[in-house]
């Protein structure tokens, strides 16, 4: 799942940092993730996993690292759906 998230970040977020070098806990905002890009990432994740993030998860914290995104996805993606 982390690789999938990493690839979506690479595609949608135009970070000045190489996505491959980002650890699971690296702060994406510190790596250059803008508010607009985090919204694009949120929408791309929803498309990819055919889910809708609940309102309580629509905040900076959820999208602050690859690990926190994966944790959020594990809560809402039906088991077995995450490739």
């Amino acid at each position: 799942m982390n690789d999938e998230i990493r690839s979506l970040i690479g595609k949608h977020c135009k970070l000045p940092t190489d996505v491959a070098t980002l650890s699971e806990t690296a702060d994406l905002y510190a790596a250059g993730l803008s508010s607009f890009a985090s919204v694009q990432l949120m929408l791309a994740l929803e498309d990819r996993y055919d889910i809708e993030f609940p309102e309580a998860m629509l905040n900076r914290k959820t999208f602050s690292s690859i690990g926190s995104i994966a944790a959020a996805l594990r809560q809402i993606v039906p088991t077995g759906a995450a490739a």
Binding site: S35, F36, V39, M42, F53, L58, N59, R60, F63
Partner: peptide
Amino acid sequence: GRAGRMMKAGQREQ
């Protein structure tokens, strides 16, 4: 919209 919820939260948090 929903994307806006994130923008609002981000604007306040920062």
